[in-house]
Design a binder for these strands. Sequence first.
DNA 1: CGCACTCTTGACTGATTTCAATTGGGGTGG
DNA 2: CCACCCCAATTGAAATCAGTCAAGAGTGCG
Lengths: 265, 265
Amino acid sequence: MTHPVQASASQRDNPCLQCEHLDSALNLIAERAQCAAKGAKEETPLDRLRRMLPGVVRTVEPGQHLTLEGDASDQVIGVLSGLVRCYRLTGDGRRHICRFAGPGSLIGLGLLGVQRHSAEAVAATQIIVFRMSAIEAAFERDACIRASILLALAEELTQRERVQLRLGRLTADQRVADFLIELAGPKNAGEHDIPMSRADIADHLGLTIETVSRGLHRFDKMQLIKLGDAHHFRLLRPSELVDFIEGDDDSSARRLPHAQRETKG
Amino acid sequence: MTHPVQASASQRDNPCLQCEHLDSALNLIAERAQCAAKGAKEETPLDRLRRMLPGVVRTVEPGQHLTLEGDASDQVIGVLSGLVRCYRLTGDGRRHICRFAGPGSLIGLGLLGVQRHSAEAVAATQIIVFRMSAIEAAFERDACIRASILLALAEELTQRERVQLRLGRLTADQRVADFLIELAGPKNAGEHDIPMSRADIADHLGLTIETVSRGLHRFDKMQLIKLGDAHHFRLLRPSELVDFIEGDDDSSARRLPHAQRETKG
DNA sequence: CGCACTCTTGACTGATTTCAATTGGGGTGG
DNA sequence: CCACCCCAATTGAAATCAGTCAAGAGTGCG
């Protein structure tokens, strides 16, 4: 067991001040508020963990495994650069990539004890490995760490919810469009990378590689995006792409047949 | 690791003893370990929140709203009895139920600030409403609360992952089967309720009500389940239902054509 | 007793997958 | 430098799965 004393380093100088009238809870609340005030938004959870905890940096080659589904694991992995796919396999051998973890992402939070999925490098990737026990200790010790962990969990949950909606309620092409929007990130302009293969995209979106390919080229033909090669694209009309996702179907192309049928009936 | 546990409990009366050599972090670690030791597994996160925090109990009628998507919200809701559906609407008006929250579930954790989905009672439901700020304060103050919140978040994440795999990689009937297994819970025997409507199930599984109905009746005809009325069922052969989900396809019906083609080629 | 609702069932349509063939790019060896 | 191979991606045609439309059955309520 790590010695918890090192944890106290920063606070050790005047510990009893805390105790006189304020219980530790109040202090921690104050501390947390302070964290939030002075830049919780700027510093990502991963950055904060790096700053405050020891971790081992590793470089992994494309295709190399980081974790295996079902492993008992005492580690949390932060992605520094590159890209990691986290996936599970169904009984009949199909693969579902539940998330792509890019720079800043944390893998292994919120599963206490056992890995829920395998993780594999998509591209050359640099990671940092923390010990779960170290994170837990820091979690108890430091309000900033707590805020960061909670934020990371909340972000992951938000992300999952987006994916869930996408899989549950969007058509094939809408899923591809939504994925492109996600890939492009906040800034729409400029050329964007598609670092993963069509197979990876398909296994993430619950489609086949053919359908993904067709979707991409359909958007290309519709002038909504511009495909460079297979792994680069540019958003030409982002807002229309979003409209398409939201069911406007870009034009009335889908609505007309319905209307026609009504007039016939 | 277990060492400091007893110490902290007895020392709580005279706090400054702690400060001399142990900072608050150490105490909190110890406290948390203690929690875990004496029954974190038995006491659900919701039970613990109820025990330690003030909350307002309310009864809601079927169809009544608890939260609205996009609301700024300072509340966390615990479900005491009944059932709540949490959903979002797509741009073209379709509904996706991202989860059913039954007794013991917490709604509104891990979204700091804004509701990510609407929540509506499926059946007559009793809830308890906590203030987020109260939970946050308790979170900082009490290691048991921390453990509970983390556990609740981890459970929700696990649940989401199951749903994600279901939506991303299972066929319509497999989704229905997986949902039934989930509804039945750990004990397979006996009669189980289906508290929600077909429309609710369909909107959760990303299917139509017709497909859900057909799936259920197919399993009934296959003698894998026994449907009582529309809202009750019994698992007759749970293991075969699980096999079906995992792609064994119950028989070799799907594998044979493939084998035949191989012999031809 | 009829109305309104949910659920079931059938026939048909259409979207997506499956199968199959072709293209294109990158690396290797002649 | 070019031919070749290998793999990923694309494209087309047929097959399948799930959705849509439509009608009927069951249930509860006024």
